[in-house]
Simulated scan of single mutants.
Amino acid sequence: MAWRVARSLDTLLAQFNARYPNRSKVSDGSIGDAAHASRSSDHNPWYGPGIVTARDFTHDPANGMDIDRLTDELAASRDPRIKYIIANGYILDSRPGNNPWRWVRYTGSNPHTKHFHLSVMPNASADDPRPWNLPSFGNASPAPAPAPAPAPTPEDADVQFHDTFPNKTNGKPISLGDALGFIDKNSHETRGMVQEIRDEVRKAVFELTYRHPSRVAGSEYADTMLGYSVNADRYGYELSKRMDALEKNVAKLVAFVEGQAK
């Protein structure tokens, strides 16, 4: 099957090679090996007419390719071509429903410490050949200046952060600024707790769905932990039935031998 790499990734590769001509490429990669071909992976030419939508770039900080810095720059760019990035045990996914544009713990078997992985979106943007806008390439646009705060309206101009109001919980006065700070602090802590719960759920789902290779020498079998558990239960039940049948046959044999002895 004919295949090629998404043009946006070819552009990024060319930019890295031009910026860091002496960089190591020992862990660079595009199309996956047999292990990738056996599972769902963006290293497979699955999109469109055989297009690979992922590339790996080698970690070589001595020659400029520091994957911590470069992946942070990619994340900060919010380039719409980005699907997800994996580096140093973390993953950032741009898609809604996946903690978009936030680094979370990566639970895959390869923590990606020797290279970083970049997948691009499986749509027309994958072949967008425009240069990537990163500070390391010297072509990053400056961040837009924050919009000025709106002037207070006549209705709320007399309400200030230091103004106090009765606290309906304990009756003590509390300032507007303290109340807003309390709300923001608790909201931040709640988001952190929700994130931890999501990470644990994703880890549990991964453990239930990842196909672990068999530990039996020479076996090519692989299954999920649930699959192994079901198989063990079935084989145990079948073995118990065989043991029952064997006991009955042994009893018959003993009776026969005893009868012959008489």
Rank of each mutant, 00 (worst) to 15 (best):
R4M: 06
V5A: 06
A6F: 01
R7E: 15
L9Q: 04
L9T: 02
D10Y: 02
T11R: 11
L13T: 07
L13E: 08
F16I: 11
A18R: 13
A18L: 14
Y20W: 03
P21Q: 01
S24P: 00
I31P: 06
A34Y: 10
S38M: 05
R39V: 11
S41C: 10
N44Q: 05
P45G: 12
P45M: 13
W46P: 00
W46Y: 05
G48M: 09
R55D: 10
R55G: 13
T58F: 05
T58S: 10
N63K: 00
G64T: 07
R69D: 10
D72Y: 04
I82C: 05
I86L: 03
N88T: 13
Y90S: 09
L92G: 00
R95M: 13
R95T: 15
R95P: 00
P96Y: 06
R102T: 15
W103C: 01
V104C: 01
N110F: 03
P111I: 01
H112T: 09
H115F: 03
H115N: 07
L118D: 12
L118C: 08
M121H: 12
A124F: 13
D128G: 04
P129V: 12
P129D: 15
P129A: 15
W132L: 11
W132Q: 07
W132Y: 13
W132M: 11
N133G: 07
S136K: 06
S136H: 08
N139A: 02
A143C: 00
A143S: 11
A145H: 12
A147N: 02
A151V: 06
P154H: 00
A157R: 11
D158L: 10
V159E: 10
H162Q: 12
H162P: 00
H162V: 09
F165A: 09
P166N: 13
T169R: 15
N170P: 03
G171M: 02
S175V: 01
A179K: 02
L180H: 09
G181A: 13
D184Y: 09
D184A: 14
K185A: 12
K185V: 11
N186C: 13
M193C: 11
V194T: 07
V194Q: 08
V194S: 12
Q195I: 00
Q195K: 10
D199F: 08
R202I: 02
A204V: 09
A204G: 04
F206D: 14
T209E: 15
R211Y: 03
V216Q: 02
S219I: 00
Y221V: 13
A222H: 07
D223R: 08
D223C: 10
M225L: 08
L226I: 00
G227V: 10
G227C: 09
S229G: 09
L239Y: 06
L239D: 03
S240V: 07
K241I: 06
R242P: 01
M243A: 14
M243V: 07
D244M: 10
A245V: 08
A245P: 14
L246T: 01
N249L: 11
V250K: 14
V250L: 15
F256V: 05
A261W: 03
